[in-house]
Nucleic acid binder design. Structure first.
Lengths: 194, 194
DNA sequence: CCACTATACGACACCGGGTGACATGTTCGT
DNA sequence: ACGAACATGTCACCCGGTGTCGTATAGTGG
């Protein structure tokens, strides 16, 4: 069973992320020091870093978890499916999960408007993007070259980025799913016949 | 005429970038301190930052210059040209310029293998990517929506990234221009009729 | 209930990237 | 040759991030 130790740890972590996000939203990411966050949550700067490896990670929180999810989802798709279609479906589902959380919404806004966070997001994405590319190439049926698989996943990420950006530009009113569909339709790759 | 002041400034800057690149290649980016670089070039840490706004910028050097170039090149293209084709042509030319320089080659290798540098590159790219997108949308002929223009430029960037990556994977032997053509052909967008 | 150990925390010192301020020299226009 | 613009070094400082140590507290076996 989960002991008290782990429970409090999770609780503190959540509280810390919460406080951090609030402060970031109020006064900006760069204008908020780690010490400030820690103090507002009732602990020390040193202890903040015992919960998060870096200041940026207080923002991302659960996002990295979903990264693994995408890889699994891709692997769960039928191996003979059009790769582009697989990416489309998986990312659409992933996107809806993000959209469901109020927290994730605020994070997105913050990330999009803070250069260093945008960069960090790309870094994280690049990590599981490579895994997705590998997953596509591992399919027994379609012999995808590394170059092609990379290109597809990169393009899919580009689509996702564009949708996020447009959605934020619309103030959160736009229909994300529809945008994603448009994006995936517009740049549908012309794969060689198999 | 360019006075001595500006000439020496350029020279020092180049020297600094040179020394930095050498040290980075030898012992890694993170393992090299700014003070080390400055000392090796015969000045102070403080002075290093008078030539480069950040440690990372010693690596990029001339890259940001070419960023502006891309925007101009896009604007110089005929306004009724297919946007995707415009991007293709401009990026191909840009890529060849990069390829011509021995320096840029080493930089690319370093950037690709250093997370913080990769992040910084994306940050820089995002900046002029937005300008390119605006340039496309400014065309009087084809009324591109912001979403579409963003999608195209994002996809073009994705293509460029994939090519760079593949090229490095091949150890620099692959034909970049051919790869770029393949990429741009594979994900050619299906634009609505105008 | 009591000892024993693992864990969490605060405190402190330290590193490296980056900035502001000031003093001193050097180059430029006139 | 003179004053203004500029470059450099020095010093102090901020902030993100890490290593270390002492100490309190929670979890566990008897």
């Amino acid at each position: 069973m989960t002991g008290l130790r782990e429970r409090t740890r999770r609780a503190v972590r959540a509280e810390l992320a919460d406080v951090a996000l609030r402060l970031f939203a109020e006064q900006g990411f760069d204008q908020t020091t780690v010490e400030e966050i820690a103090q507002a949550a009732g602990l020390t700067k040193r202890s903040f870093f015992r919960y998060f490896p870096a200041k940026e990670d207080a923002v991302f929180g659960g996002v990295d978890v979903t990264g693994e999810q995408v890889v699994d989802d891709i692997r769960a798709r039928p191996g003979d499916e059009d790769p582009w279609h697989s990416l489309h479906q998986v990312l659409r589902r992933w996107q809806q999960q993000i959209h469901a959380s109020e927290q994730a919404l605020a994070s997105l806004r913050l990330i999009e408007s803070t250069p260093s966070l945008r960069a960090r997001l790309h870094e994280k994405r690049a990590h599981w993007r490579q895994q997705v590319s590998d997953a596509l190439r591992d399919r027994p049926d379609a012999g995808l070259e590394a170059f092609t698989a990379d290109l597809l996943t990169n393009a899919a990420t580009a689509a996702l980025d564009t949708v996020s950006h447009e959605w934020l530009r619309s103030g959160g009113t736009a229909d994300q799913a529809a945008l994603l569909d448009r994006a995936f339709t517009l740049i549908r790759p012309a794969l060689p016949a198999r």
